[in-house]
Design a binder for these strands. Structure first.
Lengths: 208, 208, 208, 208
DNA sequence: TATGAATGAGTCTTCATTCAT
DNA sequence: TATGAATGAAGACTCATTCAT
């Protein structure tokens, strides 16, 4: 049964990593215990060590596994969008910490950022993921600019601004700040985005 | 009954909290140990428990102590600024994770956000602090609007946008993302801010 | 004020020892803490060490202080008793763990016995106190025998039997065994005592 | 899944509990440390927690384990006894704190009584055990009465008296009181017992 | 004489990891 | 491959004791 085993193994790994993420979101990165993940995943502690070698490796894998495939959900959100604005609007909407699923994903990001400052491997992934995400946004913005839908903005800069805006707003919304419900986050975010995309670029201010 | 005990005690507390923050930044919230803080602060573990009752209380105090007085540094940064724009520019500049001190403060915030999701008391402080900070920004923006220096924007909304922008950009800069050095962060942030403040408010888009 | 000081000191000591006994009864010998006694006595921990040198010395003193004066209450109980039997009956009655005060005293004895097995100094006091108590009983029994009120028993042996009976019954009654309420203890004890004192001494059984 | 785990586990538990009793007798209930028990039992501290959850649960188990099976040794002592008196005599003899084993068991009881006052679970066991023991004695006494060997005494009351006598005497003997060696305890105890069993029940005294 | 802040050794307990099965 | 009993290092916390005041 050699071919089957690989599949089985992959399923085990995925099962463990999912359990690990549940634990991370519930308890925080460092409060996660191997035993806790084992129970959540319905396996023994030995199995986890068997698959990942040690706890830290498993926890990193749990973060990376999720962090790296964020794009998938977004790509799905774009299906059927007609204009560049509509696409950006959908991405923003898909980012709102409105459902438990999305909120848990943001919590994972908050945890992730907290860890990245002290873990070089995570840092590399964070950087790569941010590059992917801003390039993805920049491409859409560039299309909108090219078609005349948006003003002639710098796609890379505007994408960076949009990404920061979403992250910054999502922090407060995820933390359940009553001043920034998901609906308000949407409004505030799209309002800013509109000004970034449609307004005449004002006279350049001094750079550093 | 030793004289001036209150003063001495306050100094001890401050000494311990400073040490705790050093440990948090270096190791992460949960990896901090009482022994570690004690050694950093040059006191015994017993002293820490004596002053704070338990580890968690001390760690919370360490976060709150810093998080709550952020405004002080900012107020200092404003001295001598002539225009509203100049004031905002200085605040942005003061926020750049350029020096070790500011970068450590941002690291503390990243850690803080990671913890807030699981700690109601921290959540309340996070919210209060965000309210203070955005109101502080809104007041400056309102002055600029009133004087005709800025367009007639909604101060509260624009302040929320600016705060999010700073937070979102600072995450990447603090994490040493090479695409967003402190200088680049400054440029990207001020560029967005200019568009938010000076451009004609475009026709209102659809709200939720 | 030299003469006053001695009095004051004695009062302090008594205050501390009373507090210590309260703590012992409530928590058990070893669970008593210096801080706990200090708070109960409304003094500082330093004061306790000042007076007794260390914790163990204080705890021993607390036990001895009480254990040694047990006789006082008993002597009072005898006032007005006409016959030897009446005297013994009153002593038994005074021994019943019926009031909180007497029950707490028995609890102290239970604790004391638990400690004596490992503390030579306490052992010596325990022995002396038992000798006093049985001699006290023996004297009354001898008087009753001499006057013809009781049979011609051996006072020392009968006193030992009575003391054991009281101790053994009091254990169960103090532990709130529902089969042995204070009233039942009284009945069972006096019933046995009557047989020991009034019946014809049966033919001597074999000694060891 | 290791074979016969149940058996192995039971042996481990017994090994730990025996070590715990050794420590209790040597040091006193509260002075026992997990580390000490672990070393005595030749296991790790982790193993103890693994089996019992926490220290208190283990200590209780150590007491209960012994306290509950006291009857076994006594039943063995009865083999070959012809008369009811002989049976009681053997029980008394088996109770003498003469050997280290029996003395240690009495020390355990002294410790146990000291703890029972503050532990409801232990209290329940103490009560149950006392009921068992007195019923066991009462049955023998009833047989002796029925056969005409003893006077027509109330078996329950006499059993309670005998049990108290044994407990009370054993305290002093266990505490090595020179006035009450095991041999003397035997004599004093059997002497009283004889009067309780053979003498004419005197006219009933006043009940409460 | 009396205080109580400070200490740090020692406690229980947790938990990642090992390893025999 | 998978288990989970066992380990023991490391953690938070307790508390008797010291000592400057």
């Amino acid at each position: 049964m050699p071919p089957r085993l690989g599949i089985h193994e992959a399923a085990r790994r995925a099962q463990i990593l999912r359990a690990a993420r549940t634990c991370i979101v519930a308890l925080g990165y460092e409060r996660v215990t191997v035993r806790g993940v084992a129970e959540t995943a319905n396996v023994s502690t030995g199995t986890i060590i068997h698959y990942f070698g040690d706890k830290d490796t498993m926890l990193e894998a749990a973060l990376l596994d999720k962090v790296q495939d964020t794009g998938i959900a977004f790509r799905a959100a774009l299906a059927g969008a007609q204009t560049a604005w509509e696409r950006l609007e959908r991405l923003v909407t898909a980012s709102l910490p409105e459902t438990d699923e999305v909120r848990d994903e943001w919590r994972l990001w908050l945890t992730f950022w907290g860890e990245v400052t002290r873990n070089e491997r995570l840092r590399a992934v964070s950087e790569r993921q941010h590059r992917r995400w801003t390039r993805f946004l920049a491409r859409i913005i560039a299309e909108g600019s090219a078609s005349g839908e948006f003003a002639a903005v710098d796609p890379a800069i505007t994408a960076t601004q949009l990404a920061a805006l979403i992250d910054g707003l999502a922090i407060q919304t995820t933390l359940q700040n009553p001043m920034l419900s998901p609906a308000q986050m949407r409004q505030v975010c799209l309002s800013a985005l509109q000004q970034l995309l449609y307004s005449h670029q004002p006279a350049q201010f001094m750079s550093t």
